[in-house]
Structures are given as C-alpha cells and as structure tokens.
Design a protein around this nucleic acid. Structure first.
Lengths: 220, 220
DNA sequence: AGATCATTCGAACGTTCGTTCGAACAAAGT
DNA sequence: ACTTTGTTCGAACGAACGTTCGAATGATCT
C-alpha cells in the first residue's frame, strides 16, 4: 500500500470517473517530471542522462522520482507514448472534413512539423531513442508508430489513385519522414523559419517530386 | 616508452614514410578493433556500449584495448573521422569529369547511399552519435561534416544557376540529407532494394521537386 | 644467448549507475 | 485527538562503468 503502482491506479480511476479534467495533484506532478525528463533526455540522450540528472533538473529527490514510475525505462516509455498519441490524435482531428488528397498530405506535413518544432525536445527523444525500449514497452510504442506510418501510406495511396500516379509508396513515405524528422538535427528556433513556411517548402519539393511521376512505370 | 601514444606515433611515421600501403600489424589490429567497435556502437549506442562489450566483441582484453587508443571518446572520434573522410574522398573522385549539374547531384546521392548501405553500422554511428564528442574532437569532426554539407550546397547552386531555378538551397539540402540519412532507421538489406535503385527513386523525387520550381519566387 | 621493444592481460582503482528501504512529513478522514 | 493515506527524502545497496598499472608474453635485433 502506498506503492507507486497503487497510487497510479487510483489516480487514474479518479481522472476518468470524477470530472472531465480533474488534474489531480499526482497527475500534475507527474506531467512536470515528464517534461523535465524529456528535456534532459533530449540534451544528453537516454543512456547519457542519469537518474541523478533528472532529480537535479526536476527538483525532486532521487528516491522521490520512483514514487511516480518504477524504472527509468518505464519513464522513457511514458514520454514516448504520450508524445506519439498526441500527434496522432491531432492529425485525425485536422484531417476530418478535408477530402482533396494533396491538401490532406499538406495537412499531414504541417501537423508533423508543427508538433515537431513546438515540442522539439520530445520529438528528438522519440526519433533518437528508438530501439532502447525492451520487449513489452517497445512493442506498444512500435504499434502506435506503425499506425502513424500507415496513415501516411493511406494518404499517399489516395493521391496515387486520384491522379493516376505510379511510384513506390513505401519509399516515398520513408523519404518524407526522413525530410521531416531530420529537422531535429538542424533547426534553430531563432534563426530558421517557422513550421508553416518549412511545411510549405517541404510540401512543394515532395509533392512536385511524386506528382511529376505521372503515369510512368514504377522503377522496378 | 611502450606507451600507447608512443606506439601510435611510431607506427604512423612508418605508415607514411616507408611504403604506400605498409599496413603494419598495429594498423591492421587497430582497424579490426574499429570495425568491431563500430558494430557494437551501432547496436547499443555510444553510451549504451561499455568498454567490456567492446572487449568481448573484439576478443581483446579490456586493458589491451587501451593500448590502441587512450579513451572511449577518442575511439568514437577515430571511427567518425575515418568514415567521413572516406565518403568525402570517394565523392570527389566520382565528381571529377562530370559537369552536368543534375548528373552531379545524382552522383552525390548515389555515393552517399551506396556508402551508407555498404557501411550501415558506421553511418548509423555517424548520424546517431552526433553531439557526444567534446570540444576538441567534436570540432574536427564537425569541420569535415561542414565541408561535406558545403559540397552539396555547391552542387545545388550550380543546378539553380544552370536551370534558372529559385528555392531555398539550405532547406533543399537539409531535406535531401534527411531523406538519405533516415534510411538507417528502415533499410533491411535482405528485403529492401539496393543503393542504385533507391538512389534513382530518391533522386527522381528530389530533383523533380526542386526543378519544378522554375523561375518562381522563393517562398518569403 | 641475451637485450630491447611491442603487445596483451588479470586485477584492481575510484566513480557513478539504477534502484531500494525505512523514516519523516503533509493532508484528509474520523 | 488519533489514524490513515499520500508524498518526499537521506542513505545506502550491489553492480557496472571507464581507466590504470605492473607483470607477463611475443617478436625482433644484435
């Protein structure tokens, strides 16, 4: 009793049952810790960041942290899952009601880049610490990631059908992800453009690139 | 006497002075260790791989490794520097004698992807362990990296002048690097296509994308 | 053969790692 | 007031970390 897992289960029940946005003290504190941890993971990498770093940064004692999660690995899992779930949910909202295939892809790009630049630390952790989660945790995050990937494949297939194009959807999608995700290695908030114009330019390059493949046969 | 740094200095002198490709025992052994270390860094990450992992994998005792380099950080530096120097050198050779701007960019893409796929472990370490080297080592690697980047900027500027295009060179180059470098997250040698066809398809997407920007004004 | 050098290793150094434990404090319920 | 439950912490655990040292090999030369 009083163990972390018990506390989490109880607060979760409160969160769902009592009010729409109760935001218990526990949940608020956990969110704070997650934010600090994200920033430290982003700066020093998952393996490079010690629990003592996280303790110092979040202002909570080393032992205190373990009240909120049972291991460092689980902490990374919480960060990754929350980040990915948020971006997928936002995307689905924005796609609703838009039917033009090109416009839908532009929305996908903008949504991705906007969230990427607004939560650069979280997305860097997501992109960079890809394979460190072990079997149980890793599988769940990989599943969300695969869903996100499949959405993008669907959007591109729509475009191909609509415009009668022929190219390798897989390679196009992975190229697009590369263009977008690589941004964490070079974007400096003060000097580079904002998400809107970057999304526009990348959308131009990518969409003109794939749409110029009119009717041609796919490379073998 | 007998210290690592002394040994390295001597063998280096031999390497340069005596014959074109002398390949002393020392150099051969060091190369072996570098290869094994590259593979381990690729699998577990720089921070995640311990010196004991490297010892086990290379078959040399923990202490024995320190005869060949004075620290783990210096080992990463040696790997990164050698990898980058090789790819830049190969590129310069291949570009010689080719003057068509589009063809030169296709050569750049092919060279990058070919080396990337042939030395996937090394390139993953290069891409992934970007900011771990401290001041001295980091600056030197960053300089080679910048030279490589500038070559690509030069190629794209040639294309722009030649075809009268207008777009942001910086964003185009960084997008291209993203497309290419992201490959380490998804390419499976047995199931995915080879460097030639991937380079062709990526070249199509990218070049059609930027070349469709004929005469138009650059986005603000 | 002995001497000199290059190479390798077992054992240990001190430090830092992730994690745990029991006590202490705070809030809420009775 | 006392009890209960939720939250925090100092201190410590054993394990693993990067690195060092002196002795033991192997190789090369006189």
């Amino acid at each position: 009793m009083g163990s972390p897992s018990t506390a989490r289960r109880i607060s979760a029940r409160h969160h769902r049952a009592v009010t729409p946005v109760p935001e218990t003290r526990y949940d608020r504190r956990l969110a704070e810790i997650l934010n600090h941890a994200t920033e430290v993971f982003c700066r020093k990498g998952y393996e490079g960041a010690s629990m003592r770093d996280l303790s110092r940064e979040s202002g909570m004692s080393l032992a205190g942290l373990y009240y909120y999660f049972e291991s460092k690995e689980r902490l990374l899992y919480l960060i990754q899952k929350h980040t990915f779930a948020t971006i997928v949910q936002r995307l689905k909202e924005r796609l609703e009601g838009v039917s033009d295939p090109e416009q839908r892809i532009r929305i996908f790009i903008l949504n991705h880049l906007e969230y990427f630049l607004a939560n650069q630390a979280a997305m860097k952790v997501l992109s960079h610490e890809d394979e460190v989660l072990k079997n149980g945790f890793g599988a769940e995050v990989a599943a969300i990631k695969r869903e996100y990937y499949r959405i993008c494949v669907g959007l591109l297939d729509e475009l191909k059908r609509d415009r009668g194009l022929q190219f390798s959807t897989r390679l196009a999608v992975l190229s697009l992800f590369g263009m977008m995700n690589w941004i964490y290695t070079w974007h400096k908030p003060r000097v580079d453009a904002d998400a809107d114009s970057i999304a526009g330019e990348m959308g131009d390059i990518f969409l003109r690139g794939v749409m110029a493949a009119k009717g041609r046969k796919e490379r073998q």
